Deep mutational scan, measured.
Amino acid sequence: LRTVEMKKGPTDSLGISIAGGVGSPLGDVPIFIAMMHPTGVAAQTQKLRVGDRIVTICGTSTEGMTHTQAVNLLKNASGSIEMQV
């Protein structure tokens, strides 16, 4: 596991798309980074990659989380965001 910290302002975009989660079209698979926009906050860290499994978001485990719950957690996060992948 590695921990990645990002700074995100209220109008900034992380610039990632995620897939997976409980009840997702892919089945109940762990949440992972499906796409990254090169100008997004996540890409700027140069520490995240497409395919990385997201284990925690700001200390909250993604295990058993639906896709929608994970998306909302990421969208609503601002300031210092910590992810374990």
Rank of each mutant, 00 (worst) to 15 (best):
L1A: 06
L1R: 01
R2V: 14
R2G: 04
R2C: 11
T3V: 10
E5Q: 15
M6Q: 00
M6G: 02
M6Y: 01
M6F: 11
K7W: 15
K7M: 13
K7R: 13
K7T: 12
K7L: 12
P10Q: 08
P10W: 05
T11D: 15
T11R: 14
D12L: 06
L14D: 00
G15K: 01
G15E: 00
I18F: 10
I18S: 02
I18E: 02
A19F: 07
G20T: 03
G20S: 04
G20N: 05
G21W: 03
G21P: 02
V22E: 07
V22L: 12
V22D: 05
S24G: 06
P25G: 08
P25Y: 11
L26C: 09
L26K: 10
L26D: 14
L26Y: 12
G27L: 00
D28H: 07
D28S: 06
D28G: 03
D28M: 05
V29I: 12
V29W: 05
P30F: 07
P30D: 07
P30S: 06
I31P: 08
I31T: 05
I31F: 01
I33K: 05
A34P: 01
A34D: 14
A34K: 13
M35R: 15
M36A: 02
M36F: 01
M36T: 04
M36P: 01
H37R: 09
P38F: 05
T39D: 15
T39G: 15
T39W: 13
T39N: 15
T39S: 14
G40P: 02
V41D: 01
V41L: 14
A43L: 03
A43G: 06
A43I: 03
A43E: 05
Q44S: 11
Q44R: 14
T45L: 04
Q46V: 00
K47T: 07
L48M: 08
R49G: 10
R49H: 14
R49V: 08
V50A: 08
R53N: 13
R53E: 15
I54E: 03
I54H: 05
T56M: 08
G59W: 04
G59E: 04
S61C: 09
S61A: 09
S61N: 11
S61I: 01
S61H: 10
T62H: 00
E63Q: 13
G64V: 02
G64Y: 06
M65A: 03
M65G: 03
T66V: 02
T66P: 05
T66S: 13
T66Q: 06
H67I: 10
H67F: 08
H67G: 11
T68C: 10
T68D: 13
T68R: 13
A70S: 04
V71Q: 15
V71L: 13
V71D: 14
V71E: 15
N72D: 14
N72K: 13
K75Q: 13
K75C: 10
K75D: 15
K75I: 07
N76G: 12
N76R: 12
N76W: 06
N76C: 12
A77H: 12
A77L: 12
S78W: 07
S80E: 12
I81N: 02
I81P: 03
I81Y: 01
M83P: 01
M83D: 06
M83Q: 00
Q84G: 09
